[in-house]
Design a protein around this nucleic acid. Structure first.
Lengths: 345, 345
DNA sequence: ATCGGTAACGTAATCGATTTCAAAAGTTGA
DNA sequence: TCAACTTTTGAAATCGATTACGTTACCGAT
């Protein structure tokens, strides 16, 4: 069944395409009679050809989104927010993943430009340092909004979680219970967000007048349970083991939880534990794991809104204003860090 | 910086747009001299306008994907597979979610058609019974491939997990250890896949020559931990409680696990437990939860491939052949169902 | 010198819709 | 009856590329 075009309808009614187009788009200067005739013929299945309309309008109402891994629970939430906010404004989202590879990130951004989008939402891969490929997109008049992992090297709007505040809150929550020996399992040096959590940890210690004890800071290269297990064991083997651990990530915290269990230590009575990211599993663990929730859905929503606003500004010839949003992370206290009373130090 | 068009390049070089187009697309009948000239001018940033090319080519190399919930871990995996397979064939994916709502499913499929896609990948919402909206798409010459939750009412290719075999394997695994009192917590009546798991359970019982004991089949309306908790408690309160439970979903199994723990029963020594879906959390629970893995990524890949093949067939004027693929679910045995020895019944 | 052939490029149609401008038709007032 | 409008519609340009077809110029062959 062949698609009907404007011309088909025009011939059927006996008018020109211009008249049909006007009748369908509710132009004022159309006689009721011809309008009825067109609408009657249009019942025979006509739908404007999307590409033709977009070519004319010079805008496709589609944005591209690039994340390191679609399957990662955090990004799944972000994507959901991106899609919802975009659709609320009549736009669609083309999705790509970089697999945390700098080369693939370049490839997919180039291909998104070639396939035709009005703008891009990008979460940089861990490998990405140079952002020339994104600057290239901007040169093509394509707005870019960064979220999650960002780079100061690119002049663009950004939306991120306040990892510093999250790390501060988690640590302060432990210190507020009177614990003084609070350790941290930090992530690798490079990604900015794990560094910020570490900075939050240090700031909280300082706020409570406690020194940073280097032996209380363990480092894991990959954020995986196995490394968390090793780090926790290392910390608890110290002459004066910590009373609490703030882990850079839930995966690490879960590994630590296993290590503490094997060592016969009770959580939170012997050692309190807080993770980061608030995976769904946190509630289901025994004991339920306290964690700092990252507002993934909201990050996606706001990034989407910022991008669509910039696209609009560009279309209207208005000056494009960048904005930098920092969304609060919220501590969810559960069994793993909740002591009944706050013993004196 | 305005985008350069073919005409801009043509004027710069002093030839017509046709010559420039041919030079850039490596046509044979172009003199090396003009080709060099065009390529030199093209360095000044020219990229073919995607919409113009697609309008001419009558194909946009974009497909739509509709899932009930983007954030759901199963669908996140499926989407990843869809995107990877599509990009491997030079196509992009526009993503939408139906929020398990029939009305929204209709809206998003209509909008995907209006925005211009070459075909659609759809996982029906739980509410969807009537598939007229999808038949409507097919009438517009848009191929549709169903995956995950499908409907026999639509003549289309499908890709699903073999839930029957998964349910059978899970139950047989328990029975093979010599257990005879194996219960099942089943899902609501409607979704086909949970029904199939129940059917697999019954088939396994029959294969081992055991009768179906109605009191060993509990039903939960929503697949949530709370309901699993209640069902497990109900089962264990029976005069002759089961030795093992096969739960329709990991969420239900996790609830059951909590109920068994509270009742002071050891898993797997007192009661063996198997879930379904193989969430990442299964490995992290204590005891680690046995589960049946659904091949989400592969489902996405294969659905993508089937759709792109149908699109190709449609373009080539070949007959479009539908295909129905059923992918195996694989049982992952962990602590929760592994008894050291197989005691006699 | 003329013909046929080919290399190289221009002309123009096309994809399907939107929109400007002009023209036709109808209406009103003098 | 004719000018001055208004209403309605058609013709054609446009968006930016691709490509069938036609044209020119130059080649060697007759």
């Amino acid at each position: 069944m062949k698609r009907a075009t404007l011309r088909d309808v025009a011939q059927a009614v006996g008018v020109t395409v211009a008249t049909v187009s006007r009748a369908l788009r509710n132009y004022p200067d159309i006689s009721p009679a011809t309008k009825q005739a067109v609408l009657a013929a249009e019942r025979l299945r006509y739908a404007p050809h999307p590409l033709a309309v977009k070519l004319r309008q010079k805008s496709c109402r589609v944005v591209g989104a690039v994340v390191p891994q679609i399957g990662h629970p955090f990004f799944a939430g972000v994507i959901s927010g991106i899609v919802d906010a975009a659709e609320a404004r009549g736009c669609h989202v083309i999705l790509s993943q970089s697999d945390e590879s700098y080369e693939k990130e370049i490839r997919v951004t180039q291909r998104l430009r070639a396939t035709g989008v009005d703008g891009l939402l990008v979460c940089l891969s861990d490998q990405t340092v140079d952002v020339a490929h994104l600057r290239d997109l901007q040169d093509y008049d394509l707005p870019v909004v960064l979220f999650g992992k960002i780079s100061p090297a690119l002049d663009a709007s950004t939306v991120v979680t306040n990892d510093f505040q999250g790390g501060y809150d988690a640590t302060a929550h432990l210190l507020a219970q009177g614990l003084t020996r609070v350790a941290h399992i930090k992530g690798a040096a490079h990604p900015e967000n794990t560094r910020q959590r570490y900075a939050g940890y240090r700031a909280a210690l300082a706020a409570y007048g406690l020194p940073l004890r280097p032996e209380y800071v363990a480092e894991c290269q990959r954020v995986a349970p196995a490394e968390g297990f090793a780090c926790a064991r290392q910390l608890m083997a110290l002459p004066e083991p910590p009373q609490a651990i703030f882990a850079v990530t839930d995966a690490v915290a879960i590994g630590a939880l296993a290590a503490l269990g094997q060592a016969g230590l009770r959580v939170p009575q012997d050692v309190a534990l807080v993770g980061f990211s608030d995976w769904a599993v946190c509630e289901l663990l025994d004991p339920a794991l306290s964690s700092v929730a990252r507002p993934g859905y909201e990050i996606g929503q706001q990034a989407s809104e910022l991008l669509l606003r910039e696209i609009q500004q560009l279309r209207d010839g208005q000056p494009v204003v960048h904005e930098h949003r920092v969304l609060a992370a919220t501590l969810r206290v559960r069994q793993s860090s909740a002591r009944a009373t706050a013993p004196a130090s």
